[in-house]
Amino acid sequence: MMSATLSTTFIRDLYARMLLTRIVDDHAWKMHRQERIDFIASCRGHEAAQVGSAVCIEVGKDFTVPYYRDLGVVLTIGMTPYEVFHTYLQTHLSGNRCSEEQPASKPTAMLHWGYHKHNTVTGPTPMATQILHAAGIAFACKLRKAPVVTVAYCSDGVTSEADFLEGIQFAALHQLPVVFVCEQNCPDSLADTPSCLHAIALPSGLTHQRIDGGDVITVYRAMQAAMQHAREGRGPLLLEMCVTRFTPSSSTTEDITTIESAEQHDPLLRFRHYLQEQGLWDDEWAAQLNQRFTIEVERAMQEALRDA
């Protein structure tokens, strides 16, 4: 990591946003263990990729199309912890209503992040269709000659879907101002994990870059350059961000081993070590930050439960 031209305030803000994402995610898991909600797709391990990319989005101007695991994206754009928990609870209640109406075929719950006042487009249930939606939004922006970038997020699990392929091909054909962010789960290092796109013939006119999604500074710099590239009308980009996904789903030995083996890739710990190396880490500041966020998120969770 290199911090040239980045202020101490900005770098610490990145850490704060990642920490907030982790704490909200932990509380969502708490709700799940208490059976308050049925479904949770943890973003643990994705914090650097999500926060480092989302801070580059011009809120209220650019369009964002997140996928269900993008908690760090919606928080960074401006969604509050209360609104996040409210979304989880509404998803839970909606699934229960569907179950009562059709008890024989209870649908799988799915988070539909939406924050229209900040141009965050609600994602559909079918995976990869958000890529087509993003291409369509970017096409409309280009026709209007607006200096607006559309950012679409997805997982590596949808890259072979027809909607994904059609979306990136359409964007490349029309040289649209859109950035596609693919969060690839990489159990090993970036060098040891093959690209999830290795079997796909990417269209000409689409710039592709694969980066370490666990390094928030690297993500920020790559995304900042990508947004400028797209905003200047130089065509779409596909950023493949390698992250290590790990979830504390239970206390079984197998899960604990999985979590411990992933700790070396934890983006929060990596960033803390970086801050310490740069002389930017302060134990008192970090403790106060953690305490403040924990109190605020706990209060938001309780208020959302009360209102639900």
Rank of each mutant, 00 (worst) to 15 (best):
A16S: 06
S3W: 11
T193W: 05
V151C: 08
M1P: 14
G123A: 14
T120D: 04
R22Y: 01
V24T: 07
G167S: 06
H229V: 07
L6E: 05
N119H: 09
L143H: 12
A128K: 04
Y88F: 10
T120E: 12
T9I: 13
Y274W: 09
K145C: 05
I211K: 10
I256A: 09
E254L: 11
Q291Y: 02
H86F: 15
R17Q: 04
A49K: 00
L202P: 07
L89K: 10
D62M: 00
D163E: 14
S261K: 15
P103E: 03
V158S: 14
H265R: 11
A146L: 11
S155P: 09
E260N: 13
V178Q: 05
R306V: 05
I137D: 01
H116R: 04
T150D: 06
I295H: 12
L190Q: 03
C242I: 07
K106E: 11
T120A: 06
I11G: 00
V65L: 15
E83V: 12
L165W: 13
K142M: 02
I256Q: 14
V158C: 13
T207L: 12
E296Y: 13
L197S: 10
E254Q: 15
T159I: 15
D13Y: 05
M18G: 04
A152H: 07
Y115V: 09
E35S: 13
R306L: 10
F10T: 05
A308C: 12
V158A: 15
A230C: 09
T21W: 02
Y220P: 07
M301K: 07
A28N: 01
A172N: 06
A104H: 10
R12S: 01
N119D: 01
A162V: 13
D266R: 02
S250Q: 06
L20M: 11
T207I: 12
E101R: 01
R221D: 04
Q184M: 11
I295V: 10
R234V: 08
C182G: 09
R17F: 00
P194M: 09
F10Q: 01
T21N: 02
A104L: 08
L206H: 01
V59C: 02
T247M: 13
M31Y: 08
V55T: 00
Y220M: 03
G205N: 04
M301P: 02
V297F: 03
N96R: 10
L71T: 08
G72K: 09
P248Y: 11
W281H: 00
E35I: 09
R272E: 14
N290I: 03
I131V: 04
L238T: 04
L19N: 00
G233P: 10
I295M: 13
L89Y: 14
M1W: 11
A308N: 10
T125F: 09
Q278S: 10
S94K: 11
V55Q: 00
H229Q: 08
Q34I: 03
S105R: 08
N96Y: 04
P126T: 03
S189M: 05
K142Q: 11
